[in-house]
Every structure is written in structure tokens, then in C-alpha cells.
Nucleic acid binder design. Structure first.
Lengths: 114, 114
DNA sequence: CAGTATCCAAATAGATACTG
DNA sequence: CAGTATCTATTTGGATACTG
């Protein structure tokens, strides 16, 4: 028998699931996490070049969100010019397999658009 | 070595991940899937009574979205009055473990809000 | 019981320009 | 290189009322 977490009667918005879906549901966030997952630590413009179509503003906001969510860390390397590296926290890394599972789910059930 | 699906250089919106995150990111959808997962087939008002705070309109929209996404099926039972049952497709059921994983992820990394 | 229509508010996304 | 500010457009969410 599979035990499922009890969410019955809960209102969306203050349930534990929300912490995860709030990240996954944003337009660029999952892609961003996935990029850091596969490529390791990257600088601002490195990320920009890897995510097609993202603007400075969107990337900046996404990175801030993800830091607040405890998924991404920002490291300032004090060179000239200054370097900033973004990478995943342990929580961020643990999101990896789940994103992979989502990808696999999509491939399995909707092979046409993948 | 873990092989990760290649999403590099892809623009959000037309990638396979999007099919899943588009569902998970909506306010009521994950909860709705989770409810059908743990309780099986339910009628419109049965669902309403189990998801606290959801309005008719929101539930209606969510159910339509989920049908379009291939995650939920609608069965009309031709009684008097008419009964309608909503349940998960195989794709919807396969989303279950992923939602559980998300829940577990949240508990593990952010025990305070669960 | 099982929904849809309408109208409005709030959140999110995008373009463009600018800064240290 | 690494961002923020501003302003606008689009999407989503919610209240209320109504239908077969």
C-alpha cells in the first residue's frame, strides 16, 4: 500500500507542495535550475547565453527568487572585473532528479512534442 | 555518471518540461491531481468539498485544463440527475509519485513549514 | 448536481533603457 | 561583466450571478 501525504482539505497556497510548485511553475525557473544542474556554477552572462530568449530582467528576477527559495547560491569572486557565480544549494540539487522525472514523464506520455 | 536530458539552449515554452510545469505551476492543479490520486474518481461537488477555498469557476477551469492536458478524464453517468465523474488518466497517475517526491523534498529541506 | 458568463483585481512577463 | 528601473501587456485568479 502506498502512503500518500495528506493534503486533503488544505487550501492551495499554504501547503508544503506550494514551495516546490511555486518554483516549478514560473516560466524560466525550472530551465534555470536544470541548466545549473547540468553545467555547474555559471556567471550571469554564461547563463544568459545558455537560456535562449531570457532577458536580463527575467534572469535577474529568477535568480533572486531562487536565492530566496533556498535553491540557488550566489558567490562573488572578487576579481577585476568582479565575477559572480551561481550554483545550486543541496536543496536545488535534490530538485534535479525530480525535474528529470518530469522530463521522463513527458517523453513517456507525450512523445510527439519531445 | 548521471545522464541528464538535454535542455540546453532551449527556450522555455516549447520544451517538454513545459508540459509538466504548466500543470504543476497552476494554483489548484497539483492539489486537484493529488486529490483524485488519493481518493479516486469524484464528482464535481465532491471535489469542491475536498479542496478548501476553490470556487466553481476555478474548479471548472482546472478540470478543463487537466482534460486538455491528458491528465484527467471526464465520465458522464447518465442518471437522473446526471452524474459526472472525474478521474486520472494513466499519465495523471504517473504524476502522483512525482508530486509525492515534491512533497518529500519540501519536508526534507524546509521542515519548518510542513 | 454540474457547470458557464461577466466583470474586475492582482500577479507575471516583456521591451527598453540605464548604472557601477 | 552584472545587474536595476520603469512602464506596459498579458495571464491568472476571484466574486457574483446565472443556467440546464
Amino acid at each position: 500500500m502506498t502512503v500518500h501525504g495528506d493534503l486533503t482539505g488544505v487550501s492551495a497556497g499554504e501547503n508544503p507542495l506550494h514551495r516546490a510548485t511555486d518554483i516549478l511553475g514560473k516560466k524560466w525557473h525550472p530551465l534555470l535550475v536544470h541548466t545549473l544542474l547540468t553545467e555547474g556554477a555559471l556567471g550571469f552572462n554564461d547563463i544568459k547565453n545558455r537560456i535562449d530568449g531570457i532577458s536580463d530582467k527575467m534572469l535577474s528576477e529568477a535568480l533572486n527568487d531562487l536565492q530566496d527559495a533556498g535553491v540557488v547560491v550566489r558567490d562573488v569572486i572578487d576579481d577585476k572585473p568582479v565575477r559572480v557565480n551561481y550554483s545550486l544549494t543541496p536543496a536545488g540539487q535534490d530538485l534535479g532528479p525530480i525535474i528529470e522525472a518530469l522530463l521522463e514523464w513527458s517523453h513517456e506520455h507525450f512523445p510527439e512534442n519531445a
